[in-house]
Amino acid sequence: MRTNGGMVKVDEKQLARGLGWFSIGLGLAQILAPRQLARMIGVRERPILFRLIGLREVASGIGIFSKARPAEWVQSRVAGDMMDLTLLAAALGLNTSTRGRVAVATAAVAGVTALDVLCAQQLSSGPNGKPGAIHVEKVVTINRSPEELYSFWRNFENLPRIMNHLVSVKNLDDKRSHWVVKSPGGTTVEWDAEMTMEKPNELIGWRSLEGAQVDNSGSVRFERAPGGRGTVVRVQLDYRPPAGVIGATLAKFFGEAPEKQVAVDLHRFKQLIETGEIPRTEGQPAGRSRSTSRVYDDFVRG
């Protein structure tokens, strides 16, 4: 996902992953070779201290990778960086350390802290943090012909079958349709849209009409994959909240992570077209009051 509208264009997920690797790398070095690392950055050998820092680094590193939404883990990194900075500052005051080297290490950690802060801000603000447009692109390969996929998508009334947050789409005529979208509060957002582009078996584009609560547009492209491997489907969506309305409406509309939402929808599209059904576990038995896991299943599929 990229956030436009004056914000720095950083792919925060990518950044979070980079920080995850950094955490794991730094953490393991601190655990495995505390002495060498200490020597390298010029601090007097204090293995136990370094081990403790290492544990925290690695724990938050793995957290960034495994969390669907890594914001909290990144915040734990920010806390960790602060701790490192404080410790290094303390080391600076001791004459047993080589100040120059400690200063370099401090600069490096401070640099990472700055990145962490930026990343944590972007992740936690998400789509509703700043008034700005949302742009999402996703691609999937489906083991069917462009013709078949095109004809499914060409009838927008099919879309609620694959998109959880769509309540309904009604075709008004050959070009125009009416969309009703769920918001988690139990209310709905509605708008009329029209088809803006149409190239049989290749491309469909649409856009909301004047007066929509959420100005949005989208397109889907179908390209035959090489070697008879089905069709590459590319989806692009843009959402622009009207002037004066902050992104809150968008956040409601999308849940928390627009990119995840589109990824899930495209998986569902592929599953439905290829297998005739969408895999589910909602309704299965479990040794607890609910059939699925709220932490994992509901979050991911939401």
């Binding site: 998986h267 290829e274 895999p279 994992y296 991911v300 599929r301």
Partner: peptide
């Protein structure tokens, strides 16, 4: 299999 994991994004 690409289709059988409903939590594929995880």
């Amino acid at each position: 299999c690409e289709n059988s994991n409903p939590n594929a994004v995880l």
